[in-house]
């Protein structure tokens, strides 16, 4: 209960901060094309310097997703930080540790999971609508539609979707769902947000979180670099990151600023613009077919000798 109250305060605080610094920067236009309005779009802000690497979010995520989760104590094992880990079909979020490159003793811990892009490449790639972007932010998966082609994995700029290769009959694409459909179970916030004992994983409206992030940067320029990862990466993501170290040094990909589907959809819809290009080609070939037809007498002669195919 105390936890819930704290969560409530956290979300309320975010909203308040957003109102207070509303004049800071306007992001209103950014959302004009999105499936949900800016007001609906939720997101999560990960404040990397605040993370202590307790891995409670990993535990909570696996428990909430209904996996066979190991006891909480096992997540205190810090030896896993020896290697960079990636999300797997049975763990949608993992925390990696990076030694501070400037020699400072304090390491940085980075929570890795689906960033829930505003214009997701996986959703654009999926040929059967098995992946969809919810107006409230989450990118969710419907296994019943999925063919298992794994084009979503090719398309994802962050290399997030994980596949159940060991399942012979009903394999699924697995990734963070932002606890879509489970929010009430977790007290209105994603499981990892609820589990975080630090001011590190913050749930709220994406607009408010963006403002909060920039406020933190301007309030503590000594702590944060002036870059909110996810604000523009891959066309913007619902998850946002604050860091004190350049993101390239923390295992983040250097994603382009445009959404990957922008180009493929431009090509695709160009080729099919009002069906004109395919029909024009059909018509053009038809005209050539008609004009290049040999004269009938010659054709008849050839037909007799059996050379003309149907």
């Amino acid at each position: 209960m105390a936890l819930n109250r704290r969560e409530f305060m956290r979300v309320a605080g975010v909203a308040g901060a957003g109102v207070a610094f509303a004049n800071n920067q306007s992001h209103a236009n950014e959302f004009a094309q999105l499936p949900g309005s800016a007001d609906q779009m939720m997101g999560v802000l990960v404040d990397i310097p605040n993370c202590i690497g307790c891995r409670k979010c990993e535990y909570a995520c696996q428990e909430s997703a209904g996996f066979d989760v190991a006891p909480l104590e096992t997540f205190e094992d810090k030896s896993v930080f020896a290697q960079d880990r990636r999300p797997t079909p049975s763990s949608y979020t993992v925390v990696n540790r990076y030694g501070h490159p400037t020699g400072d003793s304090k390491p940085a811990h980075v929570k890795v999971n689906c960033l829930h892009c505003l214009e997701p490449a996986c959703v654009s790639a999926c040929l059967v609508r098995a992946l969809t972007k919810e107006p409230s932010g989450p990118v969710v998966y419907d296994a019943a539609k999925c063919m298992g082609c794994r084009y979503c994995m090719v398309a994802c700029p962050f290399q997030i979707p994980a596949y159940e290769y060991d399942n012979a009959t009903t394999p699924q694409v697995r990734k963070c769902t932002m606890c879509f459909g489970q929010l009430t179970k977790n007290g209105g916030v994603p499981a990892c947000v609820k589990a975080c004992p630090q001011d590190c994983v913050i749930y709220g409206k994406r607009n408010d979180l963006l403002r909060l992030a920039h406020d933190r940067i301007s309030a503590h320029p000594d702590v944060y670099i002036d870059h909110v990862y996810g604000e523009h990466e891959a066309g913007g993501t619902s998850w946002l990151y604050l860091s004190s170290i350049p993101y390239e040094e923390l295992g983040f990909v250097k994603a382009g600023l445009t959404a990957p589907p922008a180009l493929t959809e431009l090509i695709q819809h160009g080729i099919f613009k009002y069906w004109i290009p395919p029909l024009a080609l059909y018509g053009l070939l038809g005209i050539i077919m008609k004009l290049s037809r040999p004269d009938p007498s010659e054709q008849a002669a050839q037909a007799e000798s059996g050379t003309v195919e149907c």
Partner: peptide
């Protein structure tokens, strides 16, 4: 599945 109009996804190259 791609035959079913309910699953048609015109943005997908695949």
């Amino acid at each position: 599945h791609p035959i079913l109009p309910s699953m048609w996804q015109g943005n997908s190259v695949l």
